Simulated assay, not measured.
Amino acid sequence: MTLDIPLSLSELENYLAKGADLLRGSVDQADFKAYIFPLMFFKRISDVYLEEYAAALDESDGDHEYASFAENHRFTIPDGCLWDDIRERTENIGQALQTAFREIEKANPDTLYGIFGNASWTNKEKLSDAKLANLIEHFSPQTLSKAAVAPDVFGNAYEYLIKRFADQSNKKAGEYYTPRSVVGLLVNILDPAEGETIYDPACGTGGMLIEVIEHVKKSGGSPKTLWGKLYGQEKVLATSAIARMNLLLHGVEDFNIAREDTLRTPAFYTGNHLAQFDCVLANPPFSLKKWGHEEWTKDSWGRNRIGGVPPKGYADWAWVQHM
């Protein structure tokens, strides 16, 4: 049985955190995010798909063909790839999950390609069928539809988990997490306005971009004027996927998150020139060692013309030159 009762933020945070705790002893805490976030996202889009399907049925007097039309859904979920399809499995659950993830990504190439990351779902020494079944059962009873959990509530709970995992692991947490007090300070100083283009060249899990949206909202502006104008780049696959999930779960309809090394291969440009933005904000990885010193000496974008080439073992000035 599933529950359609709306969840408060604290209830949802507790519910998600207990699910993460089920991984203890099987997965390193630093890797919790690579498993829990894709699973959360999968549950959310499955429940929203069924919610949309039910609404389309009501609208069409029970026409199932109509309810299946892609126009009635934010994302396409192929047959056999919903949450309940995986819940029915008792063997090779990890393989079933991985297959569902890849099929969903292929069905939504412009929005979800690569979003589920590359966690080792099929490694039974790490995640046995019994462990995965327990994890799926934990998340199954509560419906995570939009009616039960509004996008801002789900997004805030997602941010809570990002911080929780960073606090617990302390292992390379700085690679993807910036304390929200620091993020808030940076955004308030820059004071981005509605309709502006925003760029974070070291976006991590997307916290800066989320804070910009909240800032515009608090200033009385419309966050929707930022749709299609939010840009971020992150070189770690799992972290860039989390950033995309973060924005989607906050209800952001259109954004650009590129998975690539910003210093070596900047993703946003026009012709022979790097793209320019109204607002650039970032907390880049300071004192980065192997950052591409050799490439920078002959940087095709000309970023080394201002101030020369930074030291081999410190990329700090390179980040400033890029921005």
Rank of each mutant, 00 (worst) to 15 (best):
L22G: 08
V187T: 06
V309T: 10
I115F: 08
L161Y: 12
P38N: 04
I77K: 03
T270S: 12
N170L: 15
Q29Y: 09
D21M: 13
S300N: 05
P151Y: 13
R264E: 11
Y49F: 15
T225F: 07
G308Y: 04
F255M: 05
P38E: 03
L97E: 01
N272K: 14
A193M: 11
A166D: 04
K298H: 13
I115Y: 08
F101Q: 02
V27S: 05
T205S: 15
A173Q: 05
T143A: 14
Y113R: 07
W83T: 02
Q321N: 02
C279H: 05
F255W: 04
E13C: 12
I93R: 01
I162L: 15
L263A: 08
L132W: 00
I45S: 01
G307S: 01
L132Q: 07
F268P: 01
Q233Y: 14
A34V: 02
A238N: 05
S60T: 12
P151K: 11
V280T: 11
W317S: 04
E11Q: 11
A54G: 00
V153D: 04
G174D: 00
A173V: 03
L3H: 02
P6V: 13
S145D: 04
L135G: 00
D21C: 05
F75A: 05
F42N: 04
R87V: 03
P192C: 05
L247H: 10
F101A: 05
M1R: 01
A148E: 02
R164H: 09
P310Y: 10
N256R: 11
D191M: 02
G221C: 09
A30D: 01
L247W: 12
S181T: 10
D191G: 11
I210F: 13
E52C: 02
A70S: 15
E51G: 12
K43T: 05
L190R: 12
P6T: 10
D84F: 08
L288H: 10
F139I: 01
Y231W: 10
L3G: 00
L9T: 05
I77C: 04
G94E: 06
L190S: 14
A96F: 02
A315R: 10
E71I: 11
H138Q: 12
E51M: 09
W301L: 01
P285N: 08
T197L: 09
S60M: 14
W291C: 04
G251M: 12
D152C: 07
P192D: 08
H250A: 07
A241L: 12
T122P: 00
K218S: 15
L237N: 12
H322L: 14
T270A: 14
S10Y: 05
G232L: 15
A238P: 01
V153I: 15
K172V: 05
W83S: 05
N283Q: 03
A275C: 01
